[in-house]
C-alpha cells in the first residue's frame, strides 16, 4: 500500500472514530482531539512538508465533521505540524516522557489557537467560564490516547522509509 493510501486510511479511520466512539467519551464536556493529534504526529514523523499536507487534510475532515466553517482547523493544523517538526529537529534528546509533555503542550496550544481563530471569525465555540478546564482536559485526554495513534501515523506517513534515520550530528 502506498504512503498516500495509508494516510487516507488513517485519516478516514480517525474521522469515524472521532464521530462515534470518542464523541461518547467526555470529561468535563471535553473530548479527544484525534485529528489534531494526527496532525501533530504527522509533523513529528513526516517532517514539515508532509506533516503540513497531512495536517491540512486532517483539518478539512475535522471541519466537515463539526459545525464550524470549512478551513478553520485546516488553517491551524498545518502550522502546528510544521512547528512540531521544527522543534523535533532541534531536540537533541527525546524520551517518551519528554515526547508526551511536548505533545500535551502542542495539543493545548493547538486547541487554544483553534478557539482564538474561531473567535476572530466570529464564532463562540467555548463557554468562557469553562474554557480553561475544557481545553486542558481535552489536551490531557488527547495525550492519553497518543500511543496507538503514534504507531498508526508513523506507519502512514513514513512511506516505507526507515523510521530511525538520524540526520543530526552532535558536536560536529
Amino acid at each position: 500500500m502506498s504512503s498516500r493510501l495509508r494516510v487516507v486510511a488513517v485519516l478516514l479511520t480517525a474521522l469515524v472514530a472521532q464521530a462515534t466512539l470518542l464523541t461518547e467519551i467526555r470529561l468535563q464536556g471535553a473530548t479527544v482531539e484525534l485529528m489534531m493529534v494526527i496532525a501533530i504526529l504527522a509533523g513529528f514523523h513526516g517532517g514539515p512538508e508532509r506533516g503540513a499536507l497531512v495536517a491540512f487534510f486532517a483539518g478539512l475532515l475535522q471541519d466537515s465533521l463539526l459545525s464550524v466553517p470549512l478551513g478553520l482547523h485546516a488553517l491551524v493544523f498545518p502550522p502546528l505540524a510544521v512547528a512540531v517538526s521544527s522543534l523535533e529537529q532541534r531536540m537533541v534528546r527525546s524520551t517518551p516522557a519528554t515526547d508526551a509533555v511536548a505533545l500535551l503542550l502542542a495539543t493545548t496550544a493547538g486547541i487554544f489557537t483553534v478557539a482564538g481563530v474561531g473567535l476572530l471569525f466570529g464564532l463562540s465555540p467555548y463557554d468562557p467560564e469553562t474554557l480553561l478546564v475544557r481545553i486542558l482536559t481535552a489536551a490531557v485526554m488527547t495525550t492519553a490516547i497518543a500511543a496507538p495513534v503514534n504507531r498508526a501515523v508513523r506507519w502512514a506517513v513514513l512511506g516505507g522509509l526507515p523510521p530511525d534515520i538520524k540526520l543530526r550530528t552532535v558536536g560536529s
Partner: peptide
C-alpha cells in the same frame, strides 16, 4: 524521528496550504 527528505519545501507548501 522525522525523515527529512531533500525535496522538503516547508515554507512554500505551508504558504500555499494557509
Amino acid at each position: 524521528m522525522a525523515a527529512k527528505r531533500p525535496v522538503d519545501r516547508p515554507r512554500p507548501t505551508l504558504l500555499i496550504i494557509l
